[in-house]
């Protein structure tokens, strides 16, 4: 296997007596979609927060492209090339879809301490941003404020922003949440192609999507990875069936 892009070792995080992350080891290698599944309260969101930098771990290391990310804040991790989408859409609500993507392009181009040139006349921002919106099929909604987009459109916009960062890895937190069957199908297709750009750590509840997309699956229960492997191994893993797929013995 190629060198992992993301390497998580012995990661621990407790909230009081609750061990939300309890000695997690996880890898993400180039070209793969690694799905992270687990029942509600398994600690998936905590793990995402730890990786993206909105929470600090109690113990353990997260290496990204061989670099220890301990002590880096969320913005610094994003600049290294870790693109994150949110479980509930997190957008600049008053800005149009286009301006939301432009923010990512702007960040990627370097310093934001530029005070004079108007962004809306800056083709080096607008053109690549429109391109990203076209990729997620949102170009005709470019000038609609994020607050007025439909739920599905906001999910697409999240992906476009992540894409605009030109990342080295994607961290997608339930990208299908709340989408209809049609939207889920087209997004599944889209993510399938996305792995060529950068590997994806995918947290998702939609099992059809997970089984269709994932190269590997890790199962998180009570903050521990109880199983990790190829799709078929996981599907037939007795402990997984008991803990997660809700099968009684």
């Amino acid at each position: 296997m190629a060198d992992p892009v993301l390497e998580i070792r012995e990661l621990r995080k407790s909230f009081g007596a609750l061990k939300a992350t309890d000695g997690v080891n996880l890898d993400l290698v180039p070209g793969e979609i690694h799905a992270l599944i687990g029942p509600n309260g398994a600690g998936k969101s905590t793990l995402i927060h730890l990786i993206s930098g909105s929470l600090a771990p109690d113990h353990g290391t997260i290496r990204f492209l061989g670099k220890d990310m301990n002590g880096l804040n969320m913005a610094a991790r994003a600049r290294l090339g870790l693109a994150r989408s949110f479980q509930t859409s997190s957008l600049a609500q008053e800005f149009s879809a286009l301006r939301n993507v432009m923010l990512a392009i702007q960040a990627r181009q370097g310093s934001s301490l530029r005070f004079f040139r108007p962004v809306m006349r800056d083709r080096s921002l607008i053109e690549p941003s429109m391109e990203m919106l076209e990729k997620v099929d949102l170009a005709d909604r470019a000038h609609v404020p994020a607050a007025e987009l439909s739920h599905g459109e906001r999910r697409q916009l999240e992906i476009a922003i992540a894409l605009a960062l030109g990342p080295k890895a994607f961290l997608l937190d339930e990208p299908m949440a709340g989408m209809g069957p049609e939207g889920t199908r087209s997004l599944t297709e889209f993510l399938d192609g996305l792995r060529k750009e950068a590997p994806i750590l995918l947290v998702e509840h939609d099992m059809d999507a997970v089984f269709a997309l994932a190269d590997r699956i890790s199962v998180l229960v009570y903050g521990r990875v109880i199983a990790s492997g190829k799709v078929d191994e996981i599907r037939n893993h007795p402990e997984v069936r008991r803990a997660y797929l809700g099968e009684s013995q």
Binding site: S54, N73, A75, A76, A78, S90, A92, R108
Partner: peptide, 12 residues
């Protein structure tokens, strides 16, 4: 509007 969003694209 959304400080988390700004952080997530890499601007502190």
């Amino acid at each position: 509007q959304n400080a988390t969003r700004l952080s997530a694209v890499g601007i502190a």
